[in-house]
Design a protein around this nucleic acid. Structure first.
Lengths: 179, 179
DNA sequence: GTCTATAACTTGATAGAC
DNA sequence: GTCTATCAAGTTATAGAC
């Protein structure tokens, strides 16, 4: 598999425009310009906008594969790592999630919606394995969703700091292992 | 103040299209048709789309006033009522929040963004009053955000039921009053 | 593989009749 | 207050040269 191709740059530009400037800013013109190709050049790689979305969906699936593996291997435990990654950090995974979340709110791109559902379900199953109390597991998922809500709208309470996340993790862990 | 005017129907139609079908579906044409007026008629009441957004922002502010009063008066306590209301129930407030959340992701409507921030800050202050532990307060806000994230994307784990919310509330309450 | 040019359509907004 | 045109700008997509 070749790397850093023009195709990849187009996908990068698409994701970044979506995540940073919103759905409406991510026009084919804007994506082409940001990627440094012409619109015709873009449309050679992705014949329609839907195929562009499809490319992003593929990328999400791959990044989630990596993420799940990383969560399983985390020495501190699945929940801690899961919540730490959930706080917006502008990683490739983060950007891809926000980009697809923007698209998922447009009824024209159901694949974006189902891709996010797939991801959510994989996370849910993993957290359910790692946590004893199902209510705690639910809270963990909702806190993670809340963190993504924040990066989607940039509106939730003054961004969650690393220390706050640590405190939240500690409290939820205490909650799952009743003394 | 007159009620059920054409102006109100236009605002209803706008909110419903935004919340149910997304940003792109809420065109002036679609809003006018759903409200049962012509586009010219719509534009008599709201001269630009920005004024239409402004109307929704006003409505949110009013509904949040009511909501805050209701939370303060809740016999079961602020947190319980707050989280119960946060789960999607298609109330006027709920619909208005989702509608403005959709708009807030478009850089053309900063008022939508600031209106949601105002709301969030009022809720945050109220919850901070009612809860002893600041970490618990933060979790409460994030769980609420998570619930709205779910109704925004219709993607989070199989919708939260009334019973689940009750269990979550009970657990968070226990957490705030250490034995 | 990449480009320019342009077609076909949609959207927000204006003009002016009633 | 409400309506019917109509316009100007922007968007996806196609055609065809290089």
């Amino acid at each position: 598999m070749p790397r850093a191709s023009n195709r990849d740059s187009v996908l990068d530009a698409f994701a970044e425009l979506l995540a940073h400037d919103g759905d409406r800013a991510a026009t084919l013109d804007a994506v082409a310009e940001k990627a440094g190709v012409s619109k015709g050049g873009l449309l050679y790689h992705f014949g329609t906008k839907e195929q562009l979305v499809g490319g992003l969906v593929e990328r999400l699936d791959d990044l989630v594969d990596e993420d799940i593996a990383q969560l399983r291997a985390a020495p501190e435990g699945v929940v801690s790592e899961f919540l730490r990654v959930s706080v917006a950090n502008d990683s490739p995974l983060d950007r891809t999630i926000v980009a697809l979340a923007r698209l998922a709110q447009d009824q024209r791109y159901p694949e974006a919606h189902t891709a996010l559902q797939r991801m959510q379900e994989r996370w849910r199953a993993l957290v359910a394995e790692a946590v004893t109390d199902p209510v705690v597991a639910r809270i963990v998922m909702l806190v993670s969703d809340g963190l993504y809500f924040s990066s989607l709208l940039d509106v939730a309470a003054p961004e969650t700091s690393r220390e706050e996340i640590d405190e939240i993790i500690a409290m939820l862990r205490r909650l799952d292992t009743p003394s």
